[in-house]
């Protein structure tokens, strides 16, 4: 195993605070969300694992310092609802495995053009980096099945102002927007359980 301090890019004598900051910075960079549906997702995952191990190695014994490895992430399509159509299930598997050409051929061979077909075509295009085709297919899928959350998520990923991460990684981890939305979210949860966090709503 590589020197954990080298992995995190800090000096061996670095303070806890420095280590934590370096770790957070790297974890944000290689977070699986940044590599969703990316052909390099496996490399990013390895990198994340290396960072987590390095962080754990430095903080051995400190129970409060837990790395992100304890959390589980949604991995690509695995978390999405399963499809009823066996051919689509097979195509999804191929996309997940990175057999993009096979998935594309399977899609072309199909006669039906329903919402899921457009969604999967969009996913194939996205994998290949064909951003225009991907977005157009996701738009069609959403038009045909406006209630489908999976399709809407895919489209919003491409129609939002793409998060162009700053080169040397400056910038805070929490922005005003996410604080507000977390608060609202927490409020909803509280209300559901009978309490209330924000009395006015």
């Amino acid at each position: 195993m590589r020197d954990p301090y080298e992995v995190l890019g800090v000096e061996p004598g670095a303070s806890d605070e420095e280590v934590k900051r370096a770790y957070r910075e790297l974890a944000r960079k290689y977070h699986p969300d940044n590599y969703a549906d990316n052909p390099l997702a496996d490399l990013a995952q390895e990198k994340m694992k290396e960072i987590n191990e390095a962080y754990d190695a430095i903080n051995k014994g400190a129970a409060s310092q837990q790395s992100y490895s304890q959390q589980t992430y949604s991995q690509g399509y695995q978390s999405y609802q399963s499809t009823s159509n066996p051919t689509y299930a097979q195509i999804r598997r191929n996309i997940n495995l990175g057999n993009i050409q096979v998935a594309e051929d399977q899609l072309t061979a199909l006669a039906t053009r329903d919402a899921e077909w457009y969604f999967l075509s969009g996913s194939v295009a996205y994998r290949k980096g064909w951003m225009d085709e991907a977005r157009r297919n996701f738009e069609l899928a959403c038009q045909m099945a406006p209630a489908n959350l999976e399709y809407r998520q895919a489209l919003s990923m491409l129609s939002g102002a793409g998060v162009y991460r700053g080169g040397n990684g400056s910038g805070s981890h929490v922005d005003g927007c996410s604080i507000c939305s977390s608060m609202l979210c927490a409020d909803c949860c509280c209300e559901m359980m009978g309490g209330d966090l924000i009395p006015c709503c």
Binding site: N38, G162, Y164
Partner: peptide, 11 residues
Amino acid sequence: SIRQSLNRAAA
């Protein structure tokens, strides 16, 4: 659309 390509290049 072009910026999205740059995102992927950066990743």
